[in-house]
Simulated assay, not measured.
Amino acid sequence: MVPWLGPDDPFPPVEHALGITSGAPGLLAASSDLLPWRLVDAYRRGIFPWYSDGQPVLWWSPDPRMILKPDEFKVSPSFRKTLKRVLRDERWEIRVDADFPGVMRACAQAPRRGQRGTWITAEIIDAYSVLHRAGEAHSVETWFEGKRAGGLYGVSLGRMFFGESMFADVTDASKIALAGLIGHLRHHEVEMIDCQQNTSHLASLGGREIARKAFITHIRTATVQAPVPWQFDKQALLDVLPNGLPSEQAR
């Protein structure tokens, strides 16, 4: 039986989440509220919300957990050429927190294979916008010719980034934003990005699953470290290119 959380009830231990043989592996608890303080507490415990309109707030902690280590980010030869082109072309920009609510709304509208509707509800946008104003949630945005072309958002606590969602209106725009984020996090020695659940797209970029116990052990330390600064631009891409931008041959 999944416990129902009242406004002041703590989360149960993550080990109490439903197992792999259940119909909802990783489901830990449910509540009627999505209070910002509970959101932050959830992330620090390895828990995240995921639900649809008309459902209660459902809280999850799957085992295993999908993560992406910045040092393991895979850049294919074709994408490497794209990043080098972005670095050279003034029409391309990477902006941080230029339009956080707009990124969330764009993620909500992005089509997802095998999904109908969205879990990024108005309630979700409101709650994460509160975290954004507190400096605990951020968007990384790819802009082309002065228009937002793609991006991502997530929660940043200490030296840990919890990725939430991505969107692209232009080919590779979300991957460019992710590469910028990866470069920035590498520079600040962030060891892990939480990707929550396994997808083939994340796996193609270097994501992999680890045991929930190992994930929880890591975030207990990482989330209490000094926070990452959140000012960077597309020069962060240099940190994901093996040889930087050495010559005209990189065009």
Rank of each mutant, 00 (worst) to 15 (best):
V103N: 02
L18E: 14
C195P: 05
M1D: 11
I125V: 12
T199P: 15
N243R: 11
R208Q: 10
G207C: 03
F215Y: 14
W50I: 00
G150Y: 12
L28R: 08
G135Y: 12
T171R: 15
E209W: 13
L27N: 10
W4Q: 02
D99N: 04
W59R: 00
A108D: 00
E191D: 11
C107R: 08
L5C: 03
I216C: 02
W119V: 09
V57P: 13
I20P: 06
H184F: 00
L18W: 12
R88M: 13
F144P: 12
H188Q: 09
I210K: 04
W60Q: 03
L178G: 01
Q109M: 13
G114K: 15
V2T: 09
I219G: 03
I94N: 12
Q235C: 06
D63M: 03
D194C: 09
F167A: 05
L237T: 12
F144M: 10
S139N: 05
A98L: 04
S78C: 09
R186S: 09
F79E: 08
A30W: 07
R80L: 03
F48G: 02
G102A: 13
P25A: 13
V170K: 12
A122F: 02
P111F: 08
L35A: 10
K74F: 15
P12L: 04
R133I: 01
L39I: 11
D8C: 11
A29V: 06
E15L: 07
A203C: 11
E145C: 13
R45F: 14
L35P: 04
Y51L: 04
A203E: 14
I219A: 01
A250P: 07
T223C: 08
A122Y: 08
E90L: 07
K175L: 03
F79D: 07
G102F: 11
Q231E: 07
I47F: 15
E209V: 01
Y128H: 00
R105K: 13
